[in-house]
């Protein structure tokens, strides 16, 4: 913020005409127009910059600062600097480590599965079909429901004794499954639901990407006598590369922020098998009110997300370069 103020001051003060100089000539040379443009620019930009500064950058800095203190919400004035103690504890906290691996597991499964399902749906639909709009709308429809609505709905469907899914499985002779109540199945059940909810969204982006592939590439491949599979490998996949990378990066980050599903469906259970990183941070901060420790975990979480983003960017650049 300070630099912004200085900037504005620097722009304002020299503008005052000083006695003995020739302000009129200066104006003719266009200096004043330049300044006016700068002032107008800052006038348009400053509301957004100020708001981002107060409500995004300041909390970022505050999180970093709190993470070195023993800040406890109920005693805000009595906080002292405790160095790296919070960070030492993060890596010894069994719940944090479990939450970390749960989140990694969720991400590592969801990302490739959702990406393939979305691509598969887009390829199925991207042709002359009867009822094409109907199919597309059907695959997209789960996106229209909020994550909270979907999580509540599937909690009822996954209900072991009277849920819809077990009743449907019974029709085809599969025995009753425990789903969310079992440590082995809970996370996988959440993964299945998440893919079901999200795939339609990426399908739409893939469809847009498919339509951007020039038709003459396919015609050329036809002339060369390429098989459908060859066309897919040599025309479709390369044509979708940018879109796929974009989707890959956004799904990975989104998956790493897993929170709503376990919070509503399992409260992190059974036996902590569905507790995610963000959920653990939320509990430490808002349920146990341990701001210092929660902030330390938030800093670690931010670093992890940054590392994922940077590694992905580098990989993408290498592939392009």
């Amino acid at each position: 913020m300070d630099s912004l103020k200085k900037q504005e001051e620097a722009e304002v003060y020299p503008k005052e005409p000083k006695p003995g100089r020739k302000p009129k000539q200066q104006r003719k040379k266009g200096l004043s127009a330049k300044r006016r443009e700068a002032l107008t620019g800052y006038f348009f930009l400053s509301p957004a910059i100020i708001l981002l500064g107060i409500f995004l950058l300041y909390p970022m800095g505050a999180a970093f600062y709190y993470s070195f203190t023993d800040f406890y919400i109920l005693t805000p004035d009595d906080r002292s600097f405790i160095g790296l103690d919070n960070f030492m504890f993060v890596f010894q906290d069994p719940e944090f480590i479990q939450a970390f691996w749960n989140t990694v597991y969720f991400t590592v499964i969801v990302v490739p599965v959702q990406l393939s399902v979305a691509l598969g749906l887009a390829l199925l639909i991207n042709r002359k079909l009867k009822f094409r709009v109907f199919f597309r709308t059907a695959f997209f429809s789960p996106v229209v429901m909020s994550l909270v609505v979907v999580s509540i709905l599937w909690t009822f469907m996954y209900n072991p004794s009277e849920g819809l899914i077990n009743e449907m499985l019974a029709m085809i002779g599969i025995p009753e499954q425990p789903f969310l109540t079992s440590p082995d199945q809970a996370m996988n059940s959440i993964i299945a639901m998440s893919v079901w909810q999200g795939a339609g969204f990426q399908m739409m982006i893939f469809l847009a990407g498919l339509q951007n592939i020039p038709n003459h590439l396919y015609e050329a491949a036809d002339i060369d006598g390429a098989s459908p599979w060859q066309k897919f490998v040599h025309v479709t996949l390369p044509g979708l590369r940018n879109v796929s990378l974009f989707i890959f990066i956004t799904i990975t980050i989104a998956a790493f922020k897993l929170l709503v599903q376990p919070m509503i469906m399992t409260q992190g259970g059974p036996l902590g098998t569905t507790k995610s990183l963000v959920y653990h941070i939320y509990e430490a901060g808002f349920a146990y009110r341990d701001v210092g420790y929660a902030s330390a975990m938030a800093v670690v979480f931010t670093v992890i997300v940054l590392v994922i983003t940077i590694v992905q960017r580098i990989l993408v650049k290498e592939e392009r370069g």
Partner: peptide, 11 residues
């Protein structure tokens, strides 16, 4: 790049 979730507590 900043995940909003990580600043909710100080916010």
């Amino acid at each position: 790049i900043i995940p909003p979730e990580s600043i909710f507590l100080p916010l």
